[in-house]
């Protein structure tokens, strides 16, 4: 099976002067094309560090990272930028939209940084609109992020991540700020993308969310602690049945305002 990404004995050290923090201490994982992985583990186990390396936001201290057949570990800053733009789609816990831009302008953003900087054509704009409709924001294209709920903002982020048709989508606690109904909606979107063949690697703390993936990788102290295969995956119908009950309870207790989430 062809590999979308592969990390071999990956290490990341942070030199803080008196101490060196070893956030990753030799991680080797293969990600076949079409994989859907949930990375689990306690706080500080190195999940985000791994995801940032996979996303080309940083370079490993030691070890190799092969992405789509290319060795990414020693690339220059400009090359990494192009990799991020073309091969990676990011989804963050805090959405990370540009506040002064409209939904459409946010979705359009990755197009401006394509290698060679081709200008954004009318066809490109059309694609942005189609993408907005696809994630369910057809009526909200001219809204600004502060006019949207958390779930809607995360949809914008997903649409934005999809614009350059990346091979891999990386999500760091994408549902961390959302209630269970909204989380289910977002996960349904991701599941659909995975069904189309896109590789998805997501970090999560929530076991429910991890059950959407094909497998779970549990980290501990900067290494892979264990791998679990999800024999029974959560799907949209099962999740909704469950989460609507949960949402009802959440509402009654007033824990989280439904559909709203602030980081």
């Amino acid at each position: 099976m062809k590999l979308a990404a592969q990390v071999i004995d990956l290490q990341k050290h942070y030199d803080l002067g008196p101490v060196v923090v070893k956030a990753l201490r030799g991680v080797s994982i293969d990600f076949p094309e079409g994989d859907f992985v949930a990375i689990m583990g306690s706080s500080g186990s190195g999940k985000s560090t791994l995801l940032n390396l996979l996303g080309g936001l940083d370079r490993p201290t030691l070890g190799k990272y092969i992405l789509g057949g290319l060795d990414v570990s020693q690339m220059s800053d400009t090359q990494l930028s192009n990799v991020r733009n073309q091969r990676i789609g990011f989804i963050f816990q805090s959405y990370n939209l540009i506040t002064q831009y409209t939904v459409l302008e946010n979705i359009e953003l990755p197009l401006h940084y394509r290698p060679g900087h081709p200008s954004v054509s009318a066809a490109d704009r059309k694609r942005c609109e189609e993408m907005a409709i696809r994630v369910g924001l057809g009526q909200r294209m001219d809204h600004r992020p502060f006019q949207l709920s958390g779930g809607q903002q995360q949809r914008v982020a997903i649409a934005r991540a999809m614009m350059n048709e990346p091979e891999i989508i990386l999500a760091d606690e994408a549902t961390g700020n959302l209630d269970s109904v909204t989380s289910t909606e977002i996960m349904t979107l991701l599941r659909n993308l995975n069904d189309e063949g896109r590789t998805i690697i997501m970090v999560t703390h929530e076991p429910d969310i991890a059950m959407w993936a094909k497998r779970q990788i549990v980290m501990r102290d900067g290494v892979v602690f264990k791998e679990i295969k999800n024999e029974v995956r959560t799907t949209a119908p099962t999740a909704f049945a469950e989460s609507s009950d949960k949402a009802f309870v959440e509402h009654e207790l007033g824990n989280k305002p439904a559909g709203e989430g602030k980081h």
Partner: peptide, 16 residues
């Protein structure tokens, strides 16, 4: 700063 980080994550080079 946050906006700069977002742009960089989406593929903006230093030059951009």
């Amino acid at each position: 700063t946050r906006e700069i980080g977002i742009r960089r994550a989406l593929g903006a080079r230093r030059r951009d």
